[in-house]
């Protein structure tokens, strides 16, 4: 093939996007499990988990992989979006009335909202851990993510932002889960309906799972 090795085909872009996405979905599961420890009543369980995650050398490596995963996923998503917006220079007069996977039309939009949240989130937590961002005063002494979460989740504006982001993450995941399987060629008439259902359940679990934490802290803590 005369195609140069540096130019990726549309399908390669999509495959990388899907693989990175699936990796991020796995990460979301572990992240959710860790976060749910916040509901344990006091900080011990959560702190232990944080301590484990910050000291384990493998996790340190995985963090960079994770970071790369985000960047690749976002990069590929943006490339796909740019290409797609070029493919139809003149738009239709009447909006498309075909029945489609609804959320698939807004992946770039939901993605951008999630990205915005991600930046805030990274400033709040991850960059601190890396030492890129200085700790806020209230958490400085203890290097204490638990306290920081408590403080942030007492802030109604932050909670709203958080909840909205997770609703959109749910929308994003609703399409993303089955779409990743389709892109990787794993669509089979026997299993695909189940994959779609699992995808919906996954999206619900993630967005509801994450959302109950701030609600708990705002109203019940």
């Amino acid at each position: 093939m005369k195609q140069s090795n540096f130019k990726l085909s549309s399908l390669s872009h999509k495959t990388i996007l899907a693989l990175a996405g699936l990796f991020l979905m796995l990460f979301l599961c572990t992240h959710l499990l860790t976060n749910l420890l916040l509901l344990a009543g006091d900080s011990r369980a959560f702190d232990a988990a944080v301590a484990f995650l910050s000291s384990n050398p493998i996790i340190k490596v995985v963090e960079y992989v994770l970071f790369a995963g985000f960047i690749i996923h976002i990069l590929m998503g943006v490339i796909v979006w740019i290409n797609n917006s070029r493919a139809r220079p003149v738009k239709y007069y009447v909006a498309q009335g075909s029945e489609t996977s609804f959320f698939s039309k807004f992946m770039i939009h939901t993605g951008l909202i999630i990205f915005t949240f991600l930046v805030i989130h990274l400033i709040n937590f991850f960059f601190i851990k890396l030492g890129w961002v200085a700790l806020p005063d209230y958490a400085k002494d203890t290097h204490d993510f638990y306290s920081m979460a408590v403080v942030l989740f007492k802030e109604p504006l932050y909670v709203i932002l958080y909840l909205v982001s997770f609703v959109f993450l749910g929308f994003h995941l609703k399409h993303a889960f089955q779409s990743a399987f389709q892109t990787l060629g794993l669509n089979h008439d026997k299993y695909f309906p189940a994959i779609k259902v699992i995808g919906t359940i996954y999206a619900l679990v993630i967005s509801i799972g994450f959302s109950i934490i701030p609600i708990y802290f705002l109203f019940f803590h």
Binding site: M1, S9, K14, V80, S104, K105
Partner: peptide
């Protein structure tokens, strides 16, 4: 490769 070259968009599994 040819499909990409001709300016069609990428698939986003919209299923329309």
């Amino acid at each position: 490769e040819k499909m990409d070259e001709l300016g069609f968009g990428f698939c986003s599994n919209t299923y329309a």
